[in-house]
Design a protein around this nucleic acid. Structure first.
Lengths: 196, 196
DNA sequence: GTCTATATGCGGATAGAC
DNA sequence: GTCTATCCGCATATAGAC
């Protein structure tokens, strides 16, 4: 709990983000994280009792620093989409962070992966917020009644995630910002009710 | 090359698909594949000289059995989208296969992953076919001139891949077929030129 | 708070017999 | 074509000294 201890822990998490981004969680060795912060493996184990625990703290760190609005319960759907575009723009500037989460996200699909629950909950939490937002848009007559709020929420999330993977694979072939903006613009045009 | 040998190899590949789907490539042990086909590890090594080689053959097997049209160079964009919907429908019936490729796809984003090249090439190949298709649609006046063929191609691929991950994570919350169909329908409406 | 030394187990791969 | 036996290396983790 000492000041120096806290600083050390933060250093470790930052290093872990980079290493998990490069090798995934399964592929990364705990020792390589230790080395990155000039500790021996037992030295690192003093701060994090095991590798899984470190992973969970990395994920938690993301929660704190993510652009995901914690309590934006009643946000309007246009504002919500704009916020996502903003987040996406920020992401485009930090490929390392996007890498960790894209890789861990898929890795967590494997059996008994320690991050499964975290991604499950994150996914359903975001979906709920977004679906609610779209639902209110429909109720307010701003969105066509034919639209299924949950389905559109899923769609936007799926596209964002898939786009990140495509961008990481071919950064020079995929313009993540332009692509997402163009998608959102088309989405809005196609679900909003006629000009009123 | 014997008949029995070929059959054995096919069995192994089928087993590997299942095991890689469950554990990923990094997570899966070569020995567990051997066990699944009632072989010892050295017995399996007789057929596949190493683990990476097995992975590459699994990927190759996918190429042969995938719905990706090998030489559909001049396919129309509407037909092409319909083919994707058809593929997607088939995918919805074989979650195991989708799992392997979703997991490997992301795992291959890690440094020095043996499947990186395969996914790179697959991605750019599909994008080229699709982009060409959209480009001809624009030239023919069927698609709005404002549309960027490569960007839309990337978008469709990214959405398909992201949707698969979302579906695998929450099969009961994500209807992959309905979601993709609804997306494609909206895409068409928003890029086609006005009724003529 | 950080180290040395070490235990333990697993993963991939080889040698060589049958 | 398949096995037994075995090697090597790495990874997580522990014990205990400083």
């Amino acid at each position: 709990m000492s000041k120096k201890g806290e600083r050390r822990r933060a250093e470790v998490i930052a290093a872990a983000v980079e290493i998990f981004a490069r090798d995934g969680f399964n592929g990364a060795s705990f020792a390589s994280v230790a080395e990155a912060v000039d500790l021996t493996l037992p030295g690192l184990l003093h701060y994090f009792p095991n590798k899984v625990d470190l992973l969970l703290e990395v994920l938690e760190w993301r929660d704190d620093n993510s652009g995901i609005p914690a309590n934006s319960a009643a946000i309007g759907w246009r504002d919500m989409l704009e916020q996502l575009q903003c987040l996406n723009r920020k992401n485009a500037g930090m490929p390392g962070v996007v890498r960790v989460f894209s890789i861990l996200n898929a890795e967590a699909l494997t059996e008994n992966h320690p991050a499964s629950d975290w991604f499950d909950e994150r996914f359903s939490h975001i979906r709920d917020i977004m679906a609610g937002s779209f639902a209110r848009g429909i109720a307010a007559g701003e969105i066509t009644t034919g639209v299924d709020p949950e389905m559109i929420a899923n769609e936007v999330i799926a596209f964002m995630d898939g786009l990140q993977v495509a961008w990481l694979r071919s950064p020079d072939k995929v313009d993540m910002v332009k692509s997402f903006d163009s998608y959102v613009a088309r989405l809005i045009r196609s679900i909003e009710t006629g000009k009123d």
